[in-house]
Structure formats: C-alpha cells, structure tokens
C-alpha cells in the first residue's frame, strides 16, 4: 500500500513536470515555425509559479473553486490508470480503456462547471462551444476505440500493449491505421488545439471558460492542462504506437505524437463551431465506420 502511494506521487511529479515541458515544447515549436526565437522550454512552469504568486484571489462561490480541482482530480485519476510502461500499471481493471477514455473528457466538464458559475458571458459562450465540440467528437472518438477493441478483443490497456509487443504496433494493421487517423483528428479537439480551439478562442471570446480565472485557480488549471497533456499523449502511444518498455521510450513516442499535433495546429486556422461539428460528423465518422467494419471483418 505504502509502495503504491509512493509510486503514485512519483508518477504525478514526473507527469506534471514533463507536461509543463510539453507545453513549453508546444510554444517553442510554434515560435520556431513562425520564425521567432520563442520562450524557453520551462516557460509554462514560470507562468504557473507567477500565477501562484498572485496576492489576491477572487472567487465567485464554491463551485467556481471546485471546478479546477475536479478537473485536476479527473486528469490525475486518468493518469493513474495508464500502463506507462509495459509491466507497470498502478490501478488496473478489465475495462480500463473505457475508464481512461471517459476520464480524459471529464476535466473539460470540470472547467465548464467552474466557468459557468462565474457568470461571465464570455465563459458562457465558451462553455456552450466546448460542450458542442465534446458532443461532436464523441462519435468518431467512440468509433476509433470500437475498431481498436474489436481488433484486440479486450478492454484492458495492459493486454493491448502486450498484444502490440508481440504482433507489432497497431498502426501496421490497415483498419487500425484508419482508426489512428480518426483518433488523431479527435486528439486535436481533446487537446484544444487548432483547428478545434473554438472553446478558448483567444481573439474572439478572450479565453472562453478561462476568462474569469486568475491567480491560484488559473495556476491549478495550468497544472491540470500539463497532467492532461501527459496523460493524453501517453494514451495515444499506448493505443496505437505499441506502448513502451521504459519511460525514455515513452517520452520519445509522446514527443512524436505531440509534434504531429503541433504541426497540424500551426498550419490550420480555427473552425467555427458549426464547421467543426459538421466536419467531425462527416469525415472522421465515415473513416471511423470503415475502420470499425474492417476490424470486424
């Protein structure tokens, strides 16, 4: 029991730190693509520290404070369910794929909860857009996971990793390659990157749900985003890139996944909400259905 707690804390520290570095990589790469020098890699850590060091903190009631904590808790729990290396998984159950897939979406709900209670109209618009994006991405997200589960015949992440260690990465299977493409499109929406950054569109609705957050709550949201980024990239690696034997291998694969997301994000402009919903319900859904059918056959 004691051992488990220590492991959980160590994973959490590692994931938070690496998540911040990932956010730094994101900003640095974007800057390099735009031919700028860009901030140092540890910039998000500094930002979070600065937000923690704010002297005042404004609150709009209990739910407003509870929202970020709820989001952070869900992210941490999702992280604990992931088999970060082949033989290491802190919590496991036979259905942990479903658990992780849904826990990775709960943080958005937490942020929405907090944002709505602030009563700011920008938050309201952001929440509305965020929920609609979530609804739109459920269908392709689910189809990609169905294709995967159908192919491996199990809901256990550990077994999926083991199967991939024996038979090669998922993306070598045609059906799962298609599923990977679908998942990668949804991934963009999960991370809140362009072309699906409609929720926090900084130029239109000034950060959307985040607009009323400042000081310590915003620092919490940043930490949550770091953990979430680590968990989501790890989830992608586990599902499609064959998991990892050690943390270094995991890190390299995660950064590869992150780079794809950043490159897509820096090329495409933002969808409007109706375009996003139409897009997600059209192309990824069609591809997802084909992937699921191929996996069944």
């Amino acid at each position: 029991m004691m051992n488990m707690i220590i492991q959980a804390v160590l994973i959490l520290i590692y994931a938070t730190f690496m998540g911040f570095i990932f956010m730094g990589i994101e900003r640095k790469t974007m800057a390099r693509i735009q031919r700028r020098i860009g901030p140092p890699l540890y910039q998000p850590l500094l930002d979070t520290l600065k937000l923690l060091g704010k002297r005042e903190s404004i609150t709009h009631g209990f739910i407003y404070d509870f929202g970020p904590i709820f989001a952070l808790g869900a992210s941490i729990l999702a992280l604990m369910f992931l088999p970060l290396t082949q033989n290491f998984q802190l919590f496991s159950s036979s259905g942990d794929l479903i658990v992780v897939a849904y826990l990775l979406e709960v943080p958005m709900l937490g942020i929405m909860l907090g944002a709505m209670s602030s009563g700011n109209p920008y938050s309201g618009v952001g929440v509305q857009r965020g929920l609609l994006t979530m609804v739109a991405m459920q269908l392709p997200y689910g189809l990609a996971l169905i294709a995967l589960v159908e192919h491996y015949g199990t809901f256990s992440l550990q077994e999926i990793v083991k199967a991939q260690q024996i038979a090669g990465w998922s993306i070598l299977v045609p059906a799962l390659l298609l599923a990977m493409i679908v998942f990668d499109i949804v991934f963009q929406a999960l991370l809140g990157l362009e072309p699906f950054d409609i929720t926090t569109a900084p130029a239109e609705i000034s950060m959307g749900p985040m607009v009323e957050y400042g000081g310590k709550q915003a620092a919490l949201l940043f930490t949550q985003h770091a953990v979430q980024l680590f968990a989501e990239t790890a989830f992608f690696v586990i599902l499609f890139l064959g998991g990892a034997n050690n943390l270094l291998e995991l890190l390299i694969k995660q950064i590869a996944v992150l780079f794809i997301a950043i490159f897509i994000a820096s090329i495409y402009p933002r969808f409007t909400i109706d375009q996003a919903a139409k897009f997600l319900w059209k192309w990824p859904t069609i591809m997802g259905i084909i992937a699921a059918l191929l996996a069944v056959l």
Binding site: Q34, R35, I37, G38, I58, M210, G214
Partner: peptide, 22 residues
Amino acid sequence: ATARYDFERFGIMPNPAPRMAD
C-alpha cells in the same frame, strides 16, 4: 509580437483576459 522583435523570448505574452494579466 512577431518575428522581428519577438517579445515572447522574455516570456511576455498577450493575454485577452484581464484576470490573469500582469
């Protein structure tokens, strides 16, 4: 903000929400 002078080198970032800004 753009490539010529790039103030993001110093960690300066335009931020639309006044609650977070310094």
